[in-house]
Nucleic acid binder design. Structure first.
Lengths: 147, 147
DNA sequence: ATAATTTATATCGCGCACGATTTAATCGCG
DNA sequence: CGCGATTAAATCGTGCGCGATATAAATTAT
């Protein structure tokens, strides 16, 4: 009977995750504005900097996103001259995304971004790494649980 | 020189937060579909269940959102018959959002949602509470850091 | 009291997320 | 080999987030 009265925002882990995500976005915004990227676009670039010439599906599997989100986003990166998109010769269903020279050189221009963000977190590195690992575990459990 | 090679997605705390947020959304979706709410709409309802007749600004300060996001969202809740919106008599700038009977009764229909989500997390309650507290602290630090 | 400033909401445009559907290429099975 | 099933992208519609701007009410300063 008193159960329903106990539901507050602060108790919801999902809300902490949700609101922290927005807070990160607000930190990233001015940093990424300088290189002309949105946060999701930055993530795609990070994935490509890590390994060039990936398929849309491959990029999506790392970001937990699908082509309905990625196709328009990557087209914007293409328009910005950061990547190229071309059908895979061996499997014409797939589109391979490759960095341009401009896309590669952007990595240097954005090199200080992660450090700025870490600083804004105001935590020591060990706690940060620990939190990161716990969240990744939680995400995997939730993805597992979703059908 | 080897620094740039070390930037991987897994190391980015922001990405763990970002992807965990999406994962939560995927868990919530089928649960909230049953009561006809989106996740942000659910959060507004939680805030109103906690305290009825709040202003848009008041709701926003709890959710870290502003009127540009909330006004259309709350209008949808109004269209759904869950809340009413009316100008405050004492300060006509403010809009006060109040639950309808239908909006109040929705709390019972959604009463099992938090429990289902906690279960999907696959963590014991202590760890969950601890993670929640750490994230809230991080969010507050980030909000502090953003000008 | 009137003007300048601040505050609360609303509006608009853009870029995600994502469910649903479409199209085209590949695979698998008889 | 051929044909149904699967797979990869793309497209479309809806609802956030949010920067920028607008409008109107209240507050402050002069």
């Amino acid at each position: 009977m008193a159960d329903k009265l106990k539901l507050t925002l602060d108790q919801l882990l999902c809300f902490s995750v949700y609101s922290t995500g927005h807070a990160f976005n607000r930190i990233y915004k001015p940093l990424l504005d300088k290189v002309g990227l949105t946060y999701p676009q930055y993530l795609v670039m990070v994935v490509l900097w890590q390994e060039d010439r990936q398929t849309v599906r491959g990029i999506g599997s790392k970001l937990f996103l699908e082509s309905n989100t990625l196709t328009p986003l990557i087209k914007r990166l293409e328009t910005a001259g950061l990547v190229t998109r071309e059908r895979d010769r061996d499997d014409e269903r797939q589109v391979r995304v490759a960095l341009t020279n401009q896309g590669r050189s952007l990595q240097d221009q954005a090199a200080d971004v992660p450090g700025c963000v870490v600083e804004a977190c105001g935590m020591n590195l060990d706690d940060l790494v620990d939190l990161n690992r716990k969240l990744a575990r939680l995400r995997n459990a939730l993805e597992q649980s979703a059908p």
